[in-house]
């Protein structure tokens, strides 16, 4: 099996971002990449090579669902949508992420002073 990829910020970060983005609106894969790139001001580059495996994983766990439709540019695309389970999962992830972030921030702040 592949080694955990460095470009993942930490395990689960990519999934969380995908779920958060999909919560706002259903998107296809390419749009997801563009959206994350844009909203992070190009700070976060999502590799397609990890996006699709992540999407497959989410699909398998029923956190998202996908269906085929036609894009505005008339291409056949697969639109991903957040499921109810996905929304719950996202909530849990975000709250635990926030706790962790708070912890990290405190440690970093303490270290500075």
């Amino acid at each position: 099996m592949k080694k955990p990829e460095q470009r993942d910020l930490f395990p689960g970060a990519l999934e969380m971002m995908i779920l958060r983005t999909l919560k706002r609106q259903p998107l296809h894969g390419y749009a997801l990449v563009q959206h994350i790139k844009r909203t992070s001001n190009d700070l976060l580059q999502i590799e397609e090579g990890s996006l699709y495996p992540a999407l497959q994983r989410l699909l398998k766990e029923d956190l998202v669902k996908a269906e085929w439709s036609i894009s505005s540019t008339n291409r056949r695309v697969r639109i991903y949508k957040l499921t109810a389970a996905g929304a719950r999962h996202l909530e849990r992830q975000v709250s635990s992420f926030e706790k962790m972030l708070e912890g990290i921030t405190r440690v970093l702040a303490r270290g500075e002073s």
Binding site: H28, G29, Y30, A31, Q34, E48, Y52, Q56, S71, T73, R75, R76, V77, R78
Partner: peptide
């Protein structure tokens, strides 16, 4: 499906 999706992704990217 995956192959198709990849193909569509590629096309969108090329379009862009």
């Amino acid at each position: 499906e995956l192959a198709e999706e990849m193909e569509s992704h590629l096309q969108l990217h090329i379009d862009d």
